[in-house]
Nucleic acid binder design. Structure first.
Length: 452
DNA sequence: AGCACA
């Protein structure tokens, strides 16, 4: 019954069309190259490249049929085949009369990215992890997440299309760095296109959506627990508004925790601007101010629950402060403003200590993204690659990264008499088995540039 | 090296 009425798919000759079908193009051939190729024969009014499963086919549409005929005729009799980048390109009339929908929204650069998280455990990737990943390229305004047939997706809003583009080109097709995810989560690949959105609508801060431009946006009722505290999202992350200022409380303080100790510990993640220590509820607390939220987030996530000294001594508990800029009246042993050079201080810890990482992160280098998104100071340098490495061996590693000179002069942060023996238990990641050695050592760029 | 799915 099946009448074989369809035309043979490949005929030796096609009826003329002002649209030409090109094949055997080099990988990721550009629109510009197609225009170059067709220009000698007439006006190219439209193109479509990267067509087909291998993305090596394309279409060129001329303004006039005669121009298409001229091109076909020329190469039909030419001894030199049509070429792009030295590769022979095969031409024929297309079986359509015009190129339709040359550009999809996914091709038009915009400030909002549509991110599809692929992988078995894609749904377990928290909005905070996404925020951290995308913040490497610039300020992330808003994120919304949702489930579609395509799977777990997110819209990530940047200030402008340029920033979005830098994030897209660096992250598309890459996996989320393993050390940002729990170790039992299987690899998650990011697929990124542009979204047609320009401004996302976020009504509440929740485990599904965030507006980082408005930290005081109400938290979704569903995300608040009975105690009135910020509750947990599906990922178990707190929905407490992030801040560039951390509140540290120190539990079981058997050893003196000085300003210098705190400065050393927290400088591992970026420049510490100010520290203020005070007593509260019979314990020691401190406010630590970073220049930006993302540094504070990383410091908090990395240090929370860890002990400054081995044996469970001086255990850190971190939360975000509501402060954004501490007011340091006087530099003394309890409070210090590291942004103000103070010649009177014996140990001012010049601000060069932390500024290098910040420049590396905030400057143009961040857009390059040829390595880790977290500048030197933002890697988890305090995390020993192996549990057998302790505080004493870790600190010099930090020093080498950020302050090669200063560290050789004084070690104010190690109380010699109180410094416990180096021990396997110190400063390792609780419950996560620590940062993978490659990540901790900085040897493994989470994303590698694929530009060649 | 053989026709586009937004």
């Amino acid at each position: 019954m099946a009448s074989v009425s369809s035309q043979p798919q490949f005929r030796y000759t096609q009826p003329p069309s002002k649209v030409l079908h090109l094949r055997n193009l080099p990988w990721e051939c550009t629109e510009e190259e197609l225009i170059e190729l067709g220009k000698p024969f007439g006006k190219v009014v439209n193109t479509k490249c990267n067509v087909g499963a291998n993305r090596n086919q394309a279409f060129i549409e001329f303004a006039d049929l005669n121009q298409a005929i001229a091109m076909i005729s020329y190469y039909a009799s030419s001894s030199e085949p049509a070429q792009v980048r030295g590769k022979t390109v095969y031409l024929q009339y297309s079986n359509r009369q015009e190129i339709v929908n040359n550009k999809t929204t996914a091709d038009v650069a915009g400030n909002v990215l549509l991110v599809t998280i692929e992988g078995q455990d894609a749904r377990l990737v928290s909005i905070d992890v996404l925020h951290l990943v995308f913040s490497a390229f610039g300020f992330v305004h808003k994120i919304t997440t949702f489930e579609k047939t395509a799977g777990f997706q997110a819209l990530v809003q940047f200030s402008d299309a340029e920033t979005a583009t830098s994030a897209k080109s660096a992250l598309d097709g890459r996996i989320i760095p393993r050390y940002l995810l729990s170790e039992n989560i299987s690899p998650c690949t990011l697929r990124i296109t542009y979204s047609a959105h320009t401004d996302l609508s976020v009504k509440f801060q929740s485990h599904r959506s965030r507006d980082y431009t408005n930290p005081y946006l109400p938290v979704a009722p569903s995300a608040i627990d009975g105690s009135g505290q910020f509750s947990l999202g599906l990922d178990g992350k707190k929905l407490e508004p992030e801040s560039n200022v951390l509140l540290a409380s120190i539990e079981n303080m058997q050893y003196a925790v000085t300003l210098d100790v705190l400065h050393m510990v927290f400088s591992a993640f970026g420049p510490v601007q100010k520290i203020a220590m005070f007593d509260k509820n019979g314990g020691l607390q401190a406010l630590i101010q970073y220049p930006d939220i993302q540094t504070a987030v990383l410091a908090k996530d990395t240090l929370e629950g860890h002990c400054i000294y081995d044996g469970g001594f001086c255990k850190l508990h971190l939360s975000y402060s509501r402060h954004t800029d501490l007011s340091i009246k006087v530099n003394n042993d309890r409070s210090r403003d590291y942004t103000i050079p103070n010649p009177a201080m014996v140990n001012p810890q010049p601000s060069t200590l932390g500024q290098q990482p910040v420049q590396a992160m905030g400057g143009p280098a961040a857009h390059q993204y040829n390595g880790t998104p977290y500048a030197p100071g933002l890697q988890p340098p305090t995390m020993p690659p192996q549990p057998s490495d302790g505080w004493t061996s870790t600190v010099p590693a930090v020093a080498q990264q950020s302050m090669p000179v200063q560290m050789s002069n004084h070690h104010p942060y190690i109380p010699p008499s109180s410094m416990p023996q180096t021990n396997p238990g110190m400063m390792r990641m609780p419950g996560q088995g620590g940062v993978p050695p490659a990540a901790a050592g900085g040897a493994m760029p989470p994303y590698r540039s694929n530009q060649m």
